[in-house]
């Protein structure tokens, strides 16, 4: 298990050297994308999304004047957007997705030779908020502030790679092993 620093936008070379199990510290630009935003992004062409790092998250924020500050920003369940993700990856050349709980076989295949899926810890919202340096932009606030697309600048945002570009998936391994144990119980 290595610790790898990645500055956004990640290049193919950056991403190819990350193996499932490695700790990844992201610095740079990250966009939060939830269910509604996925649907919208697939119907339109949204410039800031190209080559972006995707974060499955609906943050809590404070607004003072025109300035937003993020106060809590843990991950949301990634599986809800399984069915949109392979298309999103292809359309916007996505090389890194951060979320929680893992994603399905379709996403694992779409990430081969293309990108990685990293897990953040659900409920550790304040830890993650402390790695968010700045709110760069908020798009599509008409979706509601939770479902809006937040463009965030992060510093050493700590996650663990769970699916890599070689098709290895740690969540899938855990799921298979636990199902085998369950059947024997």
């Amino acid at each position: 298990m290595a610790t790898i620093h990645i500055t956004t936008p990640p290049t193919k070379e950056d991403i190819m050297r990350v193996k499932a199990g490695d700790e990844v510290l992201f610095s740079g630009r990250v966009l939060t994308v939830r269910d509604k935003a996925h649907r919208w992004l697939l119907k339109t062409d949204f410039k800031p999304m190209h080559n972006a790092v995707v974060y499955h998250c609906g943050p809590m924020f404070e607004k003072k004047g025109k300035e937003y500050t993020i106060i809590a920003a843990g991950p949301t369940t990634s599986a809800r957007v399984n069915h949109y993700t392979p298309q999103l990856i292809e359309k916007y050349n996505i090389r890194a997705i951060i979320g929680k709980g893992g994603m399905d076989e379709g996403v694992r295949k779409a990430l081969i030779k293309q990108g990685i899926y990293c897990a953040a810890i659900g409920g550790a919202s304040v830890v993650y908020a402390s790695h968010i340096v700045k709110v760069l932009n908020v798009y599509k606030t008409e979706f509601g502030m939770t479902d809006a697309i937040w463009e965030l600048e992060v510093k050493d945002f700590p996650v663990v790679c769970m699916m890599d570009t070689k098709g290895s998936s740690l969540f899938q391994k855990v799921e298979k092993a636990s199902t085998t144990i369950y059947k024997k119980q």
């Binding site: 709980g101 659900g122 855990v174 092993a177 636990s178």
Partner: peptide
């Protein structure tokens, strides 16, 4: 005993 672990990481 299932081995799922915290956040499903094992």
């Amino acid at each position: 005993d299932l081995g799922i672990g915290p956040m499903g990481v094992g």
